[in-house]
Design a protein around this nucleic acid. Sequence first.
RNA 1: GUCCUGUUCGUCUAGAGGUUAGGACAUCGGGUUUUCAUCCCGGCAACAGGAGUUCGAUUCUCCUACGGGACGCCA
Length: 439
Amino acid sequence: MTSSVRVRFAPSPTGYFHIGGARTALFNWLYAKHTQGTFVLRIEDTDTERNTKESLNSLLSNLRWLGLDWDEGPDVGGPYGPYFQSERNEVYQRYLEQLRQAGCVYEKEGAIWLKVSGATQTLDDLIHGPVQRLEEKDFVIYRSNGTPVFHFVNVVDDIDMHITHVIRGEDHLSNTNKHLELYRAFGVTPPKFAHIPLILKTSGPGKMSKRDSGSLVEEYRQKYFLPEGIINYLSLLGWSPKNDREIMPIAEIIAAFDLKDVNNTNARFDEKKLMFINAEHVKNLSPEAFYQQGVIVLKETGHENAIHDTNRLKAIFAIVQEKLRSFEELPHFIEYFFDESYPFEPEAFKKIEKYQPKQRLLELKEKLSALTNFSEENIEACIHTLSETNQIPTGHYIHPLRFAVSGRSVGPSLYHMLPILGQSTVLARIQRCLDTQLS
RNA sequence: GUCCUGUUCGUCUAGAGGUUAGGACAUCGGGUUUUCAUCCCGGCAACAGGAGUUCGAUUCUCCUACGGGACGCCA
């Protein structure tokens, strides 16, 4: 760490990790990386009724999956731990005692209340500018059951952990006055605040919530989205590098990110754009990275039979990468390379009927079987010759042939996929098509 | 209801006191004499409304409308 910036992400593990939380974590992480500061993860688990172990595991796991690693927090420790609020009671008692000594609190109906100043507080928000508001009523900081409430622990921990910048959702903007009252009571200069705009539902009113479809990080992980794609999309919700750049590697985002460029308007979540950005990242993957991920996806989706021949698989990936939008599509997209009993799709058949497919395939079968070197160039030359000799467009050969060898109307470049399948397989597939579809 | 906050194409955004208001997604159309979910080209599409300041405002100020948030012994 070469700067004194200390930021924190302070989630409450009460459900699955959602996009809004991921975006808040991301902005904190980006700012820490950009300033070479420290990113602290603090778990706000004081609500024993709603916190669950599963939620915590999901949170940590998905944060790591996204690559949002923390410098201090659960599992990694740090100088200001513990990082679970449920384990910090002594700290809170100590700070409460301080307020007692200062005469800032009183007890009423078993709970402990903070006396507010009665003065208008001005918050100099890094994103919204000066915000003035009066906190007029005293509020509870310790419940009658002896446990501290959010506002209190949040401020105490930020003080105790030396947080310099509080980057959180705009839904906390109104809470900040309570926090400012607490800082005043403690006699501590507040950190800088940056309230980032909220993410709204794709359609309809209100902010995005865990209940909305597409709102859980877990969903994208299960669909094999690339973490860097999600990070890239999320970074563009409320922030912009202001140079028309959109598809960026994470290093570029870190270098460009700054709180002063975060805007103050809520953004609507757009899954289509997320898809697009993910697809761009899939295309930009190195062959090695694509292979690694491809193998994982094939294994997890029950296609172990596809991964045995590494060289063949790499050849298939090479002609398929540019066509894929997400790894979720991979297994289905390449299935027929590994299965001689692939189905012939009726919709695909409809598209080739007009080309007199039986005749075309018989011609192709004869010419292709005569090739001594089943190369992409020779296949292409062969089809062109056929086309010229019979005065028939090449498409009339290509479409039925693709249908015959894959059962589909779409797929990777035909000239490139045939050599991978191999001459005998291609001829056998043409024959099967002739026998079962065109007899 | 009270308080806070915001308002550029359908969506994410750039922008400047005087611009043909730019880019991207989506969408529509065309092309790549091989499909397309790739690639290329093109079209459609925005400064919420009203006052004020100003030679001039979409850009600054105010009001209205609309949006979002907060008002718990939840976080």
